[in-house]
Design a protein around this nucleic acid. Structure first.
Lengths: 130, 130
DNA sequence: TTCGTTGCAAACATTTTGCAGTTTC
DNA sequence: GAAACTGCAAAATGTTTGCAACGAA
């Protein structure tokens, strides 16, 4: 049922880079990581592949910080904390009680949730002490 | 300690519009609402005021849908459901257990959270049945 | 009268897209 | 060899900003 996608070295590299970091990268950050490996990589390719990965469910857009979309490989769903000062995105565990909420949404509101994004905003440990 | 802000009819109108809807508007949507009232409103003014409101804590950016920031007046914190088909943003109640999470973040991770954004993605009642 | 606010248009930044050439199957 | 993928550069989109005129205190 899927469109037939071929592999490509660059595509694989891009996905691998996203998977092997937990810094919740932006398109440009990814581009800069690929560049040393494939100096002829183009930003357009990064964007095209990001769109594809997102569509396939391989990654999700976790937030938009400073006008830039930030992505994350969808291994295990987790919660994010964004520091309002330094803009860093930090992983924290998702509260256990969360599966209950999915059920409630369905039974009480008729909403079929596929996934969620939980983000806290505030000051991280470093910025707090300034 | 605040910079002295004057009032202006347009500014007040913009905030009132945001407060009196629960559709989580984008800048452009707001602009279109103000236009019938003040035909000479400019998009720049809307953006400037949105930035101001956000800074003052009168509104928050709840999500970015289709590349457009979506805002919400900060009355009571609530949870959002975004339909992946029709892009509508729906309010749902925030689970009670949520205050615990704030405490956990502080004690276990040293993260001082100011507010959060909880968004579910999936299919709304209408789109589900297609 | 002072200084914040606004309209307008130009500037910006990020993302998308068309096309011709390249890679993968 | 066909179809998907890519680089490049141009275009589209959403947002920001400089400036002169305007409006509120």
């Amino acid at each position: 049922m899927n469109t037939a996608h071929k592999h490509s070295k660059k595509r694989d590299t891009i996905l691998q880079i996203i998977r092997s970091t937990d810094c919740h990268p932006s398109a440009e950050w990814i581009y800069n990581q690929v560049k040393p490996i494939y100096p002829d990589i183009s930003l357009g390719t990064v964007y095209r592949n990001l769109a594809l990965f997102e569509q396939n469910g391989d990654i999700i857009a976790v937030a938009t910080v400073d006008g830039q979309k930030r992505y994350d490989a969808t291994s295990n769903p987790h919660t994010h904390f964004i520091c309002q000062h330094c803009n860093s995105v930090i992983d924290v565990e998702t509260p256990q009680s969360f599966m209950d909420v999915y059920r409630t949404l369905d039974t009480e509101h008729g909403l079929k949730a596929n996934f969620h994004s939980l983000t806290f905003y505030g000051e991280c440990d470093k910025c707090k002490n300034k």
